[in-house]
Design a protein around this nucleic acid. Structure first.
Length: 594
RNA sequence: GGUCGUGUAGUUCAGUUUGGUUAGAAUGCCGGCCUGUCACGCCGGAGGUCGCGGGUUCGAGUCCCGUCGCGACCGCCA
């Protein structure tokens, strides 16, 4: 028997028990006359004690242990004379009688403790060592807990977990596919699913009216801190439901998860915010509602609003399609340097604003701005009033074309939120973003693309617009957003094969193309498809949000870096000529000799 | 495809702005001492292809060119 207990469970009440522990040596503290060894497993740390007087041989053996040696120790639980209040097992120690070395260890390249001294790069290379650290173990345990609670909750709601294939047919829309060659079908390829979208809709046709799956999905696109080439979705679909049914049920799931894993309660229903409002007030379709600071329009063609009048000789404003401002409360005291930093921030190519106009509503009631040359005090006063500014506040104004300016204001709003410390990691403000546009126009290819995916149902009242003004059609689509993070999204689907055919037509598919790619789905819809809809959540993101992480990498046991490489395995890698031959594949390197 | 940051001891970093003696610190590691530590302490020691290649120079960690790795972001991600 290797152990009778774990390293995290023994307490004062176990005193006198003869026990055996097994684990890794975290640290030895050698005092000459006596030696302490911290023994670690994933449950905790227990101190072993060795005394030169009682057993010199054993004590010398303990001294020789190195970090991360795997050992087994048998002894008696005893109360410590010096207790350690920082350790759950700190009231006791093990008077060790037998010490068995199960396996020595090479010196690890970084310290394996709560806070390692190693950087990201080396910890990724030795991921199996990093995973020994408590923070990683907590993250993976949280992930496990959440997966269990998701299955538990959805099971009580009658969902069946059904697996769908991983090798499927490539679809042209959306992200790039990862592709798998077929040896038995030379020249032909499977694709890995970007999501089980069509399969879950087919399951609805097949009568499995509540489906769920925690499933890997694959997208061959450039990566970010919150994007991996393979990631996990909580994929769900329901038949005979309307949008409200879906939102209500999965709001229940979200509340269940918050309650069970964080003990966090919501007493109010989640806010439901139309896409247009999110864009106009927050410059984002995933607003962070942990703080206010809404965007206030000062000039907007759409709303006929024109607080800022022309005739000023200030072309930046005169020529702007849109002018908007943020009210930064109590920031009138910002120094020149701070304002310059903000200007620099909005001028970064990623943000793309040309410049930043500020208006200080000073404590003494006077107003100062960077455009005093062009506007008199009365004009500035009007802006301040519209923005609801009080003495001591600062207005930050951007101008330009509507969409990019709103987006830039949204980024500036988040930057101010960070600077003013308004982003509390322990507070969660969810919302449902609803009423998304069905289609997005792409200038480059001169065609519409589905904003969600091509199976999303238009709002029934907007269907006539499909012929006259497709860009104006709204969809029965929705996103769950928490703290500015898109946690999940879904839609009510088209279940009518004629309407689906029309969608493909609007998206520029010929009938043949649609038939080739989606024929099986359209066929299925002819045999009695129920009205249905669903949602999919980014499981990795949800875990990282709950764990308070900025990256999803540490919610995944073996993640890839931002080039899609596994630096531990060193994958992807070349394969043997023999393998290629079998697959009828010839590699045409862009850079010969690579 | 683009922007920005970064690469120096096992590890985390300083040194690079302004080229100049033997490249430092902390931590880890090794040896010695130490009977109540738990960030143990004290004494001693080892440890460097300054990412790689080229160039400028009497002289390059430092300047220039190229290249590679890592990270963040924009584009992209239905």
């Amino acid at each position: 028997m290797y152990r009778t207990h774990t390293c995290g469970e023994l307490r004062l009440s176990d005193s006198g028990k003869k026990i055996t522990l097994a684990g890794w040596v975290q640290k030895t503290r050698d005092f000459g006359g006596m030696t302490f060894v911290d023994l670690r497993d994933r449950y905790g740390i227990t101190q072993l004690v060795f005394n030169m007087e009682t057993n010199p041989d054993l004590c010398r053996q303990a001294r020789s242990l190195g970090r991360e040696y795997v050992v087994k120790a048998t002894g008696t639980v005893a109360e410590r004379s010096n207790k350690n209040p920082n350790l759950p097992t700190g009231d006791i120690e093990i008077l060790t009688e037998i010490l068995e070395l199960l396996n020595p260890a090479e010196l690890p390249p970084f310290t394996i403790e709560e806070h390692s001294d190693g950087g990201d790069e080396i910890r990724m290379k030795y991921r199996y060592l990093d995973l020994r650290r408590p923070p990683l173990q907590r993250n993976l345990a949280l992930r496990h807990r959440m997966a269990q609670e998701i299955r538990k909750y959805l099971d009580t709601k009658g969902f069946l977990e059904i697996e769908t294939p991983v090798m499927i047919k490539s679809t042209p829309e959306g992200a790039r596919d990862f592709v798998v060659p077929s040896r038995m079908n030379p020249g032909q390829f499977y694709a890995l699913p970007q999501s089980p979208q069509m399969f879950k809709q087919l399951l609805m046709v097949s009568g499995y009216d509540r489906y769920m799956q925690i499933v890997k999905c694959f997208r061959d696109e450039d990566l970010r801190a919150d994007r991996q080439p393979e990631f996990t979705q909580i994929d769900c679909e329901m038949a005979f439901v309307e949008q409200d049914d879906v939102l209500n049920l999965f709001e229940g799931l979200a509340k269940h998860l918050f309650h069970e894993t964080l003990g966090y309660e919501f007493n109010e229903p989640f806010i439901r915010m139309p896409f247009d409002e999110a864009m106009n007030s927050y410059g984002s379709d995933k607003p962070d509602l942990r703080f206010g600071m809404k965007i206030i329009p000062l000039k907007s063609g759409k709303s006929q609003q024109e607080i800022i009048r022309p005739t000023t000789g200030f072309p930046v404003f005169d020529e702007a399609e849109y002018i908007g401002t943020l009210l930064a409360e109590k920031c009138a005291g910002y120094t020149r340097k701070q304002v310059d930093e903000l200007t620099e921030f909005v001028r970064k190519p990623q943000i793309g604003a040309k410049g930043l106009v500020y208006v200080r509503y000073q404590e003494d009631g006077t107003i100062k701005s960077s455009v005093d040359k062009f506007f008199d005090a009365t004009a500035l006063q009007t802006w301040a009033e519209v923005a609801g500014a009080k003495p001591g506040d600062l207005l930050l104004i951007l101008a330009g074309n509507s969409a990019p300016t709103l987006k830039a204001l949204g980024e500036l709003r988040l930057e101010m939120g960070r600077r003013l410390n308004l982003l509390d990691k322990n507070r969660f403000v969810p919302l449902w973003a609803i009423d998304f546009p069905l289609l997005e126009w792409d200038d480059e290819t001169q065609r519409f693309y589905a904003m969600h995916h091509p199976f999303t149902a238009p709002k029934p009242s907007d269907i006539p617009l499909l012929d006259t003004n497709p860009g104006q059609v709204h969809a029965n689509a929705y996103d769950l957003v928490i703290n500015g993070v898109e946690i999940g999204g879904g839609s009510i689907r088209i279940h009518d094969s004629k309407l689906q055919a029309k969608m493909f037509e609007i998206l520029g598919f010929t009938q043949e193309q649609a038939e080739y790619r989606f024929g099986f789905l359209m066929n299925a819809f002819r045999y009695g498809a129920p009205p249905h809809g669903g949602i999919a959540f980014g499981f990795d993101r949800w875990v990282s949000l709950f764990a308070g992480l900025n990256s999803i990498r540490d919610t995944i046991a073996f993640p890839k870096n931002n080039m899609g490489r596994d630096v531990m395995q060193d994958s992807p890698a070349e394969i043997d000529e023999e393998q290629l031959k079998e697959l009828n594949i010839r590699v045409d390197h862009k850079n010969p000799g690579a």
